[in-house]
Simulated scan of single mutants.
Amino acid sequence: MTGSRPHTLFSFGTLTDERVQTTLFGRAVPTSAASLAGYTTPPLPITGPSVIAAGGLDVRPVLERKLGAAVEGAVLRLTDQDLAAVDAHEVDDHARRQVVLTSGERVWAYLDAKPLRPAQRIVIVGDSIAYGRCDPRGGWAGRLAAAHIARNETAHRVFNLAIPGSHLSEVSEQTPALLAPRRPDTLLVAAGLNDSALPLTAPAGHGDEPELIEDRLAALAATALDHHARLVVAGPTWIDEERTLDYEGLRFTEARALAVREVMRTWCDANHIDYLDMWEPLRGRTGLLVDGVHPGHDGHEALYRHLDALGR
């Protein structure tokens, strides 16, 4: 018989009230005071009509990163069933993610479900598509940077550190040393397509096992938390297989790219990591690709609009 796992959840609102706990869990739960540095609690618009009707308000406070700020609250110690009850209680506009308390303890907290909406300082790491190859405007990342900084010239920053040709293994190894001087609140990882490519000489069935991709994502998640940043993973983009069967000595296939996409998406879902699916904007639109792999100007525009809608 498997017992319930213990969970810790940071709350700064009604969940700290014993009466609310009793209503939700059937009892008061172990609770201790805690502080979360680097966050503030601005109001978040609520979009669910039933939630607005029940609460009478169309906004609720949500945790948002802000250097120099702190939120005082409490840590609740919960069972599997308790945590599931809170998940059901929270609105769709919130998402459960890990944060690091001032004490250094890693706990759950509910953040804005749109991961780029509260972002201020974004670090982008990844491959040539994140780098913006084949687009003089800097690709989707260049467009994201321009729009993000225009919203707040004083506080907003975007650092695009993507390197063409990078695999997830290289991204996960190189990223830790890049973050400290840039003080990110958001780490946007856009890689994976190169992990799907195989040398033309590789035997059938050769390639990274799903566990290796998962290990690299886990390393990036740990790196993000070490720097009090939120990890956001942008998945692989669609490729035109008919034009990439022999690409500079590599073989890109749709089946391999889809397999990597599914591993990344499944891992993110299981580990409560934000996943932005970048496949659909280009799927079947071969004219948006310069060489079957890299989007051109219009392709990057489509990717940016899609990412912005998912993230904001």
Rank of each mutant, 00 (worst) to 15 (best):
L24I: 14
L24A: 04
F25I: 11
A28D: 14
A28P: 13
V29Y: 07
P30T: 05
P30V: 04
T31S: 13
S32P: 03
S32D: 12
S35R: 15
S35D: 12
L36D: 04
L36P: 04
A37Q: 01
G38T: 04
G38L: 01
Y39G: 11
Y39V: 02
T40Y: 02
T41F: 05
P42T: 08
P43N: 07
L44N: 05
L44H: 06
P45Y: 03
T47D: 10
T47G: 12
T47V: 09
T47H: 06
T47E: 13
S50M: 13
V51K: 12
V51F: 10
I52T: 10
I52M: 01
A53C: 04
A53L: 12
A54W: 01
G56K: 03
L57Y: 05
L57C: 05
D58N: 06
D58F: 05
V59F: 10
V59E: 14
R60G: 08
R60C: 09
V62F: 01
V62R: 04
L63T: 08
R65M: 01
K66Q: 15
A69W: 05
V71P: 08
E72R: 15
G73F: 06
G73R: 03
A74S: 14
A74E: 12
V75S: 07
V75H: 03
V75F: 02
R77Q: 11
R77I: 02
T79Y: 09
T79G: 00
D80T: 01
D80P: 00
D80G: 06
D80K: 01
Q81H: 15
D82G: 11
D82R: 10
L83V: 07
A85T: 08
A85I: 02
V86Q: 10
D87G: 00
D87C: 08
D87A: 00
A88T: 09
H89F: 14
H89I: 00
E90F: 02
D92N: 14
D92V: 13
D93L: 02
H94L: 14
R96K: 10
R97V: 02
Q98C: 00
V100H: 01
V100Q: 10
L101M: 00
T102Q: 15
T102K: 15
